[in-house]
Amino acid sequence: MLMIAVKAFLILLYATFMGFMFMGIIRIVTARIHRRVGPPIYQPILDTIKLLSKKSNITHGLIYDFGVIYALGATILALMFIPLGGVSILRAYGDLILITFLLEIPMLGIMFAAMSSGNPWAGLGAQRALLTLLAIQVPLGFAIVALAEFYGTFSTYEIVMAQQTVGWSITHLPLLLAAIAYDIVLQAMFGKEPFDIMIAPGEISLGPMVEFGGKHMGILQIQHAIALFAETLFFSNIFLGGAVVTAFASPILNTIASLAVLLIKQLAVLMIAIFIGVIFPRFTIDQAARFYWKWPTIIAAAGAILAAL
């Protein structure tokens, strides 16, 4: 019991820290592509400390507070189910469908909080966020179906183990197609261009985030960090082979090594997202929906059908 608590705490700490580093990396890489110097890598942590240490906060009612708390809580819940090298605690229950749903729930919390503020921008942002969700769900669904059909199991951990013997998922054609589709979906899940329609700074004033300030926004920053970590981790696990290192004698060394392997894979996923994000302008929502319902869906459906044969 105590062991589980300690493990969970360590995972949480690691995920939060790495998530913040990822956010910092996003900002630095973006800046470098712009030929700027960019902020230090620990900048998101400073931002979060600043937001949490604000001396006055506003609320729009109980749901406004609860939605934010719920978003972070659900993200932590999702994180616990994703296999993280050798340390994850709930990986036996890390079901593909469950994790897919769990990664979507935090957004529901944010939407609840945003909408309860009554700000028109937030309403507009919620609408766009939901339509993006609707748009990405089709290719996402096909990609998950392809995975489950290819491996015949829904357990993420078993998929990771299977990849140790049959090779990474992306080396198989059906799953390569699924991975391409999923990566395009990931772009929208990260909220990066060209699918940052829901946030759209400068257009609808950050959309759902417009009313959050102070500690609410601070909690959402932490949530964003963990979600970023969890999403990249999920992708690395199911498509890039995860990490199971057994080269060393000591289990601690093995764990550290597998975490390092995972980190490299996660960074690769992140970099693709940044590079795509930096060079593209923003879609409008109906363009995004049409795009997602066309090419990624066709690719993912082809993958799913090939996997089913």
Partner: peptide, 29 residues
Amino acid sequence: WLVVGLVIAAIIYFLGAKVRKVPVTDTYQ
């Protein structure tokens, strides 16, 4: 685990400064 997550989030929430309720007309327009 959802309760655990909510508790962690709530701890962070309650460590922050107090909140003040604002009406719907006091939003950013």
